[in-house]
Structure formats: C-alpha cells, structure tokens
Nucleic acid binder design. Structure first.
Length: 362
DNA sequence: GAGATTTGACCAGG
DNA sequence: CCTGGTCAAATCTC
C-alpha cells in the first residue's frame, strides 16, 4: 500500500516536472516569438497550443493521481477539512455565509477559504481601487509590522450577506506598497455588476508606471480618495509589483510583471485589481482568472492558467472566463496545494516565466 | 439623520 | 497568555 503510494507520488512528480519543462518551453517560445515580431504569431501559436494541450494533459494526469492518492491515503482528512472539492462534489464547499453566521466566530482565520493577495504600489489607501465598495470595520496593530492592518468588509454584507473581506496593510519595506489580502468572494450584486460595467472609481487619476518612467497615456482610471496628488501611481516591475497569492492554495506563489503595456480600456473585469491595472490585457486575463476568479475544477484551473500567462495568443474565449468568474467558489485545488514546492517554485516563476506583458499583449 | 470610520473590548486559536 | 480577527459603541462626515 505504501509502496504503491510512493510510486504514485513519484509519477506525479514526474508529471509535474514534465509540465514545468513544457511550461518553460512555452514561455521561451512565447517570449522569443513576441519579441521578434508581434504580428507573426500564427505559426508559433500552433506550436503553443500543442504545448498548452500537453501541459494541461500533464497537469490533469498529475491531479488525477493526486486525487486518487488523497482519497486512499490519510490526507483525505486534510482534504475534507480543506473544503475538499473532489471534482465538483458539493458536499463540502467553502464555508458558506450561513455556516459562518451560525458559529458567530470572531476568528475567521481558520476557516477554509481562498485567499488572494495583491500587492500594489499605489498612492491611495487602497480602499476602492478594486472597484468594490468596502467598509472598514477594524484596525489592528500587528506584531512585527510597522503599520496597522485595516480590516474591510463588503459594504453589502448586511444587505446581501456578502462576506467578502479584505485586509489592507502597508508594507514595512515600502510605505507606498499596500499588501491587500482578500478573503472570501463577493456574492453581492456589485460583483456581477462590476464584471459588466467595470466602472472605475472616480476622482484621482491613476496611471501605470513603467520602471519609474511614467507612461501616462490615454487611460487614466480614477480612484475615489484624493489624499494624493494626481500622481497616484500604480507601479509594476522593478519598482512595484502585482503579486497574487493564493495563500491557502498556493498554486501560483507570485507573479511579477516587468513591463506593463498600456492598452485600451477594458470593460470586462471583475476583480480585485485596480481598474487601471486592467488596462493591461494580460492583467485582464490574469485577473479574470485568478483574482476574483473562482476555480471550480482542475480543468478550470488550467484553463485559467492558460489564459493567465499566455495572454492573447492563447486566450480565445473571454466568455469562458467570465463564466468561471461567476461560478461559486469551491476551491477545487486542495489536492495540489503543495505543488508549488515541487513545481511552481516562486523563483521559477519570477525568473523563468518571462511575462513581459508589453511583449505579449500588444 | 444615515452611513462610514475609529477604537477599545471581546473572543477564540495556537 | 498572546495575538489576530471581529464586534459595537462612539464619533465623524456629508
């Protein structure tokens, strides 16, 4: 029994390593093809798609094995407690509002939920840059942190029972950076509304900065609080980063964008990114799939994944993603929670994943 | 006056 | 017992 489990584990690792290699290959291909000529992607696209299919296939195999192992092994308990989502089984979804209310727990920490963390460099308090309306309900000095952490919940919590919350904390290193941790998903109407209208918050102008050279162009999404001069900036790359972390699930430890493109206004976004950030096509894909997105199955996840890193060259169905976005969270990925240890190493992504959004998305 | 924010107290996990 | 997360009364803003 244990031997077979070990064999399975090895084969899973093999699958994942293969996936990693394929991903690298794909990245190299994407990077080189887009940097050489942005318009001649048709030939490489075919190859890319093949690669993508391989990657997806590899991942699905690995996941199937992991699931299999999990069902047999002792990790099942962990899976269950971690809102196991064995392929869409509604049996144990993420703790739903009713459940949370019943226990009236003042600590949400232990509740299984998906977390998203955005680390943006921006000049405002970061309260509404994601387009949702939040209400502050607490502030706490955190041990070891210079700045207090602010606790926000969805404004429509009482009205619509939306339990989305977020925590905003200034970075110790750079006070201009706010670490925002999103907990739970919006179940309120603004979630779906935002997806369609994506009304940018008003007032303060925001622009994307590229390596300290402000690429202030046509798009200047706005923010609500004007505590900053008009120079409110979102930065990416070397100065600032957009970091997405699924703290509980840790599929993608982090992403760093090195050079954002300034694209046309995107109307479709339902996510936690500041509107301005969505100007970037990649971010649209990225955010749609990973930020407020709910991943409901392995295949969904990999669809998302494919839409994230590969930008437009691969992404050919926004409606799919939109559908995914509006799907209830049921965290389908507990079975691969720890995969980043063996596959999605942070450094690998930072260094091996050449996500030059300008290259990819123009 | 309604809604948002502040802030001290409370609660529960580790 | 310490700490983080939440509550809720007081206060502020529009």
């Amino acid at each position: 029994m244990e031997e077979s489990a070990q064999c399975e584990q090895v084969s899973v690792i093999d699958e994942l390593l293969l996936g990693k290699e394929l991903t690298k290959k794909l990245c190299e291909q994407l990077f080189s093809s887009s940097s050489s000529s942005s318009s001649s992607s048709s030939s490489s696209c075919d190859t890319n798609e093949v690669l993508i299919e391989k990657i997806i296939s590899t991942m699905e195999k690995a996941l199937a094995k992991v699931n299999c192992m999990a069902n047999v092994g002792e990790s099942k308990a962990m899976m269950d407690s971690h809102c196991s989502f064995t392929n869409g089984s509604p049996k144990s979804e993420v703790v739903e509002p009713e459940v949370e209310h019943k226990h009236v727990s003042k600590k949400r920490k232990t509740m299984p939920r998906r977390r998203e963390q955005v680390e943006v460099c921006l000049g405002t308090e970061g309260n509404k840059e994601d387009g949702y309306s939040w209400r502050k309900y607490g502030q706490k000095d955190i041990l070891g942190a210079k700045f207090p952490r602010g606790y926000y919940r969805c404004t429509y919590r009482n009205i619509q029972g939306c339990l989305a919350t977020k925590q905003v904390q200034k970075s110790d290193e750079d006070p201009m950076i706010y670490e925002i941790t999103y907990i739970g998903r919006h179940t309120c109407t603004q979630a779906s509304h935002l997806k369609k209208t994506a009304v940018p918050p008003s007032k303060t102008k925001v622009r994307i900065e590229e390596n300290k050279h402000q690429t202030n162009e046509k798009n200047q999404p706005q923010q609500e609080k004007i505590e900053q001069p008009p120079e409110t900036i979102f930065s990416f790359g070397s100065q600032g980063e957009v970091k997405v972390e699924d703290l509980d699930l840790e599929i993608f430890p982090s992403f760093c964008f090195s050079s954002p493109s300034v694209g046309s206004e995107n109307e479709e976004n339902n996510n936690i990114f500041p509107h301005s950030m969505i100007d970037n096509n990649l971010l649209e894909n990225f955010s749609s799939s990973f930020m407020s997105t709910t991943i409901t199955s392995e295949s969904d996840m990999f669809c998302n994944w494919e839409s994230i890193g590969l930008g437009q060259s691969v992404h050919n169905s926004t409606s799919d993603i939109t559908d995914i976005v509006s799907t209830p969270t049921s965290a389908t990925y507990s079975s691969i929670m720890d995969l980043d240890d063996i596959f999605l190493d942070k450094n690998d992504f930072d260094t091996d994943f050449p996500m030059n959004t300008r290259e990819l998305c123009i």
